[in-house]
């Protein structure tokens, strides 16, 4: 049996009380913050996971925001194109009426004027702005994309041919072909079809008007295809959105599991540490008081 030095005994009582107190402080802090990882060293392996989950979750949040913005843009485009389709219905009605033998020259001239009005409306719709940007100008979002040529013979495209690319995942991005030229011009030019109908009506040539009907239908078909494409894109984005939302929720759950305190566990540990501290203090106080001197008469 070793000798015990009096000062050593006091030191060891103090040290074990310190240890117990440090445990209490730790559990108390965990309970107060609700986090068991305040610094990576608290649990490096969980800390590392936490860093990764948080990073991935932040990325998912960004991608979600991009999906939302893109969806809004697509919805605005869809609504403009829906209205263009409705306007083309009116154009077709005018064409049918103009091709009818019963319509006289004055009637055709009036129809020509009203088709010109519809052309203006189609151009306005193709120049739709959303949130300060032209929807159908390609990447030249601040350039008004469509204008009548000086002689009124055709509609000129002034936007550009670039598409808008939006990242919606680490390796995924959607490309929005928002260039008005690709949507409305080129083959089956929507505006050219309406203009040639207007000119045929103005010339009062019923047979020519009947000829133009096919072009108007082709243009209409083209607008309907664009409608379908946009709808499909919106649907795909919605699916992406759901996936992103799911994975973000999953990542947040994982992050929470890595960093959040299990309250029951922490509370019971805290109580245990408190008991240990009290026991240590009481026994220490008793032991430290006694010395042989107390028993000397």
């Amino acid at each position: 049996m070793d000798r015990i030095a009096t000062a050593g005994l006091h030191r060891s009582i103090l040290a074990s009380n310190q240890d117990n107190l440090a445990h209490i402080a730790l559990y108390q802090r965990q309970l107060a913050t609700g986090k068991k990882i305040e610094q990576i060293s608290d649990d490096p392996s969980a800390g590392r996971q936490l860093l990764r989950y948080r990073n991935d979750s932040a990325a998912a949040t960004t991608y979600l925001a991009n999906v939302d913005r893109t969806t809004t843009l697509l919805n605005a485009s869809e609504s403009a194109i829906d209205q263009m389709s409705a306007t083309l219905d009116q154009v077709r009605a005018a064409a049918v009426q103009g091709a009818n033998g019963a319509t006289d020259a004055a009637g055709r001239a009036a129809l020509s004027r009203s088709v010109d009005g519809m052309l203006g409306r189609l151009i306005d719709l193709a120049n739709t702005k959303h949130d300060g940007r032209y929807l159908f100008a390609g990447a030249a979002a601040s350039t008004r994309p469509f204008a009548r040529s000086a002689d009124g013979s055709h509609v000129e495209y002034q936007g550009d041919l670039d598409s808008l690319t939006v990242r919606i995942g680490p390796d995924t991005s959607v490309t929005l072909d928002h260039d008005g030229h690709a949507l409305f011009q080129g083959e089956n030019d929507v505006f050219a079809a309406v203009i040639s109908l207007r000119d045929a009506l103005a010339q009062g040539d019923a047979a020519a008007v009947a000829d133009r009907l096919a072009a108007v239908d082709a243009a209409h078909g083209r607008i309907n295809r664009a409608q379908g494409d946009l709808g499909g894109a919106t649907q795909r984005l919605q699916m992406t959105r759901d996936q992103l939302e799911q994975s973000r929720t999953f990542l947040d759950t994982l992050a929470s599991a890595a960093e959040d305190v299990d309250m029951t566990d922490a509370i019971s540990k805290l109580q245990l540490a408190q008991i240990a501290l009290e026991a240590g203090m009481q026994s220490g106080a008793k032991v430290a008081q006694r010395s042989l001197i107390d028993f000397l008469q």
């Binding site: 000798r3 015990i4 030095a5 010395s291 001197i293 000397l296």
Partner: peptide
Amino acid sequence: KSVESQRDSFSGVNIDDEV
């Protein structure tokens, strides 16, 4: 702590002992 208590048990003062 353990080497210090080893030293204490040899070189430290125990009041009971001294008394």
